[in-house]
């Protein structure tokens, strides 16, 4: 049973009240002919026709680039002053259930041993509103990784669309309940009696994929040098597109950049935390010149291991949520599910 009801025409009101309180309202909107998560100010900006935005909303808790400290180089040495992050009330509206399940993985990494406040403080102030999928494409494979368009993991408020374009509202978390209570003027108490929910589209489970078998194959170190890796991934060109659109990929690099512009001196600069990708050939390049992952298939194997072996084992969270973004953006259509299938078939 839904808890509440949200009229499509009231979304504008919701956006306004979130923004009036100083928050951000992020939702799928068009940019350069495709749906992306954007900070929007009116309901007209919403894209009605999206399956899944091109980018992941992980950038709301883990921005692509951010300043973590400022430095100055003086006669007496280098001065470093860290920056604090407070986060900002943010609502992401219209996220998909697959992606919502990824936040748990990000949190596991960013709180593992050291609490990375740049991530946690933002996540604390993030409200995730998912909408169950009424559309899918050939790249969607959530059901193959044991999720579904009906999943609510990681979601604070889960919506299902009605034929009239309105939404039945299910509050999932405490954060979600508080959000609904705060905006009770738009979240109506009862749905209209004639509200019919649109059919949910379930991507077909890929028959040849067996997650247990994959885990077993990957856990066996004898398979590390298996010729299957170069065979399956030879076509990988080594760009970072898959990792950058992936909702669970979390690698970053720390870099110091001079900011000799805007009136600053060449002796001032910023320490930045930027996304990095295990697919780049200098990702594990050591100062000695040695690179333990010196060819592309080893880098690809690492990404696969990370998703289906290392992280599920370490955190028992999902390394892959089946959103299919990596498949859609890959310039050579290296389909991760085809690799999953091939590995499942190995003895």
């Amino acid at each position: 049973m839904p808890d509440n009801f949200l009229k499509r025409r009231d979304i504008g009101k919701l956006i306004a009240s979130v923004r009036d309180a100083g928050g951000r309202f992020v939702a799928p909107a068009l940019a350069a002919r495709q749906a992306v998560y954007k900070d929007i100010s009116s309901a007209e900006e919403l894209d009605d026709d999206y399956i899944l935005p091109r980018n992941s909303y992980k950038e709301l808790v883990f921005p692509q680039t951010e300043v973590i400290a400022d430095f100055t180089i003086g006669k007496d040495g280098v001065g470093l002053k860290g920056r604090d992050v407070t986060g900002r009330d943010t609502v992401v509206f219209g996220a998909r259930p697959c992606e919502a399940a990824s936040l748990e993985s990000l949190r596991s990494v960013f709180t593992w041993g050291f609490i990375d406040e740049f991530c946690t403080k933002r996540e604390d102030r993030l409200v995730v509103i998912t909408i169950a999928c009424t559309k899918a494409d050939g790249a969607c494979f959530c059901t193959t990784v044991d999720l579904s368009p009906k999943s609510v993991t990681g979601s604070d408020v889960a919506l299902s669309e009605t034929d009239a374009g309105d939404y039945l509202v299910h509050s999932v978390s405490e954060k979600g309940k508080a959000f609904i209570a705060k905006h009770s003027d738009v979240f109506k108490a009862k749905p209209s009696a004639d509200a019919v929910v649109k059919p949910i589209i379930m991507p077909e489970r890929i028959k040849g994929v067996d997650l247990e078998k994959i885990k077993k194959f990957l856990s066996d170190t004898a398979h590390y040098e298996n010729p299957v890796w170069p065979e399956l991934t030879r076509k990988c060109i080594g760009c970072g597109a898959c990792t950058y659109v992936c909702p669970t990929c979390h690698c970053f690099d720390i870099t110091d950049e001079a900011t000799a512009y805007g009136g600053k001196t060449p002796f001032e600069g910023e320490r930045r935390k930027n996304w990095d990708a295990c697919q780049f050939d200098n990702f594990t390049l050591h100062a000695s010149g040695h690179n333990p992952r010196d060819t592309q298939f080893k880098r690809w194997r690492n990404r696969f291991m990370c998703k289906f072996n290392y992280y599920p084992k370490k955190f028992s969270s999902k390394g892959c949520v089946g959103c299919g973004r990596c498949i859609r953006v890959c310039p050579v259509r290296l389909d991760i599910t085809e690799v999953m299938e091939a590995i499942s078939k190995r003895p």
Binding site: Q64, A241, Y244, F280
Partner: peptide, 20 residues
């Protein structure tokens, strides 16, 4: 401004062949 620095443009290009 939309660039995400994934370097797909470079990697897919046969004329961007510099190893570094």
């Amino acid at each position: 401004s939309r660039c995400i620095k994934c370097y797909a443009c470079r990697q897919v290009c046969s004329l961007c062949y510099c190893e570094r």
